[in-house]
């Protein structure tokens, strides 16, 4: 019944990390697309749109992700969508990511000095042209490092999906723990796998920050 924690288990955990990475990727793409809209809604000179975006960001950033996950997990079936855990989790994490991406990118867009807009206007460019050709390229340079930095948070937060039964790295660790009763080894192994993923991203973020900011 109770077996040892052996190397096949480590391999199993590494394979389970695919779901962690996959989930983080889905949330990055979904959250990225929505986050772009949020950042625009926040920055366009249309007050009602600004308020809506601010409200959305406060709602997501002011509540625990665990609560959001549970609300989606139990709420979606009530709305008539009989979706699996995978969909509920992916949707929830995407919304979570979108609020943070929205804020990061708004900050980047607004940190481009106002005189850059004015210079564009002086050259006779339209609002759209000033945005896409003058402000956006500069904002992207500023935004890259914090965006990669947030991915670390996102990867770590995918672990919460284990609590509603989605099988990724943390849930797989729970399953192996139940079979081997070696929680210390199992969770330390899981932590090591998370560390490899997250530390790579943090270092990447640091390198990008130095490279894109150092030269100005």
């Amino acid at each position: 019944m109770i077996r040892e924690f052996t190397s096949p288990d480590v391999v199993y955990l590494m394979l389970a990390a695919r779901w962690t990475i996959g989930l983080a990727l889905v949330a990055t793409v979904g959250g990225g697309l929505l986050g772009l809209l949020i950042a625009l809604a926040r920055i366009l000179p249309i007050p009602p749109l600004n308020w809506l975006a601010i409200g959305y960001i406060n709602l997501i950033q002011g509540t625990p992700l665990l609560g959001q996950l549970f609300v989606f997990f139990f709420g979606l079936p009530l709305l008539g969508f009989s979706v699996g855990a995978w969909t509920a989790v992916a949707l929830s994490l995407s919304l979570y990511a979108s609020a943070f991406f929205g804020e990061i990118w708004r900050g980047a867009l607004q940190s481009v000095p106002k005189r850059q807009w004015e210079a564009g206007a002086a050259l006779g460019m339209t609002y759209r042209h000033r945005f896409t050709h003058v402000v956006l390229p500069q904002a992207v340079r500023i935004a890259v490092a914090p965006t990669v930095g947030f991915l670390v948070q996102l990867v770590k937060n995918t672990s919460l999906t284990a609590l509603i039964g989605f099988v990724e790295l943390t849930r797989a660790s729970q399953i192996i723990t139940a079979a081997t009763f070696a929680p210390l080894q199992v969770y330390l192994t899981a932590a090591a796998i998370y560390f490899v993923i997250c530390f790579t991203l943090s270092q990447l973020s640091r390198v990008l920050e130095r490279r894109l900011h150092g030269t100005g």
């Binding site: 670390v152 770590k156 937060n157 672990s159 919460l160 284990a162 609590l163 943390t170 660790s173 729970q174 723990t177 070696a182 929680p183 210390l184 969770y187 330390l188 899981a190 932590a191 998370y194 560390f195 997250c198 530390f199 943090s202």
Partner: peptide
């Protein structure tokens, strides 16, 4: 600092609550 910031709180919690009793 790096070890804590690059691993999930949930796993840290499991190490303390489920892992430490084994030692």
């Amino acid at each position: 600092v790096e070890a804590i910031r690059n691993t999930p709180l949930l796993v840290q919690l499991f190490i303390v609550f489920f892992g430490l009793p084994t030692i």
